[in-house]
Amino acid sequence: MGRKIVSGLLVSLDGVVDAPERWRFPYGDEETGAAPGLVDGEAEAVLPGRVTYEAFDAVWPYPNGLSGYVRRRFQRRPPTVAGASDTLGQAVRSGAAVVDGDVAAALRALKRGPGRNIDLSGSVTLTRSLLEAGLVDELRLLVHPIVVGSGQRLFPDGTGRVPLRLTRSATLSTGVVDLTYAC
């Protein structure tokens, strides 16, 4: 069957995935940071989109820049940045590589190759495009008990039908709900 692409996102109760650094911290503790919904512990490759990579890249080398789990991911697994070749050029930090050209075709080939899962975390635009292309195998959501009111949503108005099957759920002590869906 090959590798799976597993997308993990932080989501508000009203579906906002935009700028979680502005609303998630009342719920951000070690339990939430270690939740399976946020990161695929079995993943071998890390796949951020350009915007997510640039945000992580700006702070990851600094002691207080990124939380421990994100820092460990970047140190253990240099990322492959998708959809960035025209604006990012060569990713220089953390040994990152850039996917050029047809991102969907490149990721189809990567999925067929040997190895463990591919972790796609925090990249909303990339997650949407890979869902449309049928390339996301699991969608892991940490739904936070807060209504943000406005912002980018994972599934904006006009999104076509996206059939999902719940495969795991857990409620964390902060009230965050950890959900895993098969796509």
Rank of each mutant, 00 (worst) to 15 (best):
P61C: 10
G65I: 13
D100I: 08
G158S: 05
R76A: 15
R128N: 07
R72F: 09
V59N: 06
G68R: 15
G113I: 12
V136R: 00
K4D: 06
S169W: 09
Y181P: 06
A133S: 04
P20V: 02
L47R: 01
V147C: 11
A35W: 03
R24M: 14
V98P: 00
E21W: 10
I118D: 01
T167W: 08
E54C: 12
E42M: 01
L9W: 04
V70Y: 07
E138T: 01
I5W: 00
G37P: 01
L139D: 04
S123W: 10
L10N: 05
P36W: 13
L66T: 12
Y181H: 04
D119N: 05
A170V: 02
G15T: 09
R116V: 12
L164M: 08
R116T: 13
A96E: 10
R128T: 10
D119S: 13
D14H: 07
T167Q: 07
T159V: 09
L10M: 10
R73N: 13
E132G: 15
V103F: 03
G33Y: 00
F74E: 10
S85E: 15
R72H: 12
L120F: 05
G41A: 14
Y53H: 13
G115R: 07
T171H: 07
L164F: 03
S129N: 03
F56S: 11
E31A: 02
L141I: 01
A45L: 15
G95P: 14
R72N: 09
A55E: 10
L172F: 09
S7H: 02
V17S: 01
N117I: 04
L13N: 04
F25I: 06
G33D: 04
V70D: 11
Q90T: 15
P61T: 02
G28P: 01
G68Y: 08
G101Q: 13
A104M: 02
V46Q: 09
G15E: 01
T171W: 04
